[in-house]
Structures are given as C-alpha cells and as structure tokens.
C-alpha cells in the first residue's frame, strides 16, 4: 500500500513542512482526547497522565503524518 506523498502545505504563500502540520493536527487531536478522557473520568486509569499526554502526541503525530499528511 502506498501512503500519501510527502509535500509542503502552502497557507497564503507560506510553505509549511508536513511534519509541522502533522504535529499541530496531532496536538489538536490529543487536546480533544484528553478532554473526553477527563469528562468521562477515564483518565484515573492512567498512572502518570503527563507521560500519556506526550505519548499520545507522538502516536497521533506519527499516525497523521504516515496515513493522512504524508510526512
């Protein structure tokens, strides 16, 4: 299976590296996820949420970069 081709994103003539776009999307996804986890009190099942937070950023960024953005 061939993933999306890595390419820069242009916003108003500003070229952004794909990894940056993937990281921003990953961060937004994580913020939504942790809000939901807090809302439904599922975060209490994690021993150290700050570490989970960073791990989720890495996972979402890699996922978005590999399958959606093409970083």
């Amino acid at each position: 299976m061939i993933g999306p081709v890595p390419h820069e994103y242009a916003i108003g003539g500003v070229y952004l590296p794909p990894m940056l776009v993937a990281a921003v999307l990953g961060l937004i996804a994580v913020l939504v996820t942790v809000r939901l986890l807090n809302r439904f009190r599922w975060s209490r099942y994690f021993a150290y949420p700050p570490l989970v937070f960073v791990s989720l950023i890495v996972i979402y960024t890699v996922f978005t970069g590999t399958f959606i953005i093409g970083a």
Binding site: V24, P50, F53, V54
Partner: peptide, 23 residues
C-alpha cells in the same frame, strides 16, 4: 504569516508544559 505561525505553534507548546514533565 511566519510571525503569526510562530505564536500559533509556541502557545500550544507552552500549554503542554502545564501537563509535562510536572503537572
């Protein structure tokens, strides 16, 4: 646009430190 983008990236980064490494 670069300056605006710089702040747009920096502020989430600052927000991240509310959780990591110390809450």
């Amino acid at each position: 646009a670069t300056t605006v983008m710089m702040f747009a990236v920096m502020i989430p980064m600052l927000a991240l430190t509310v959780y990591f490494p110390i809450s």
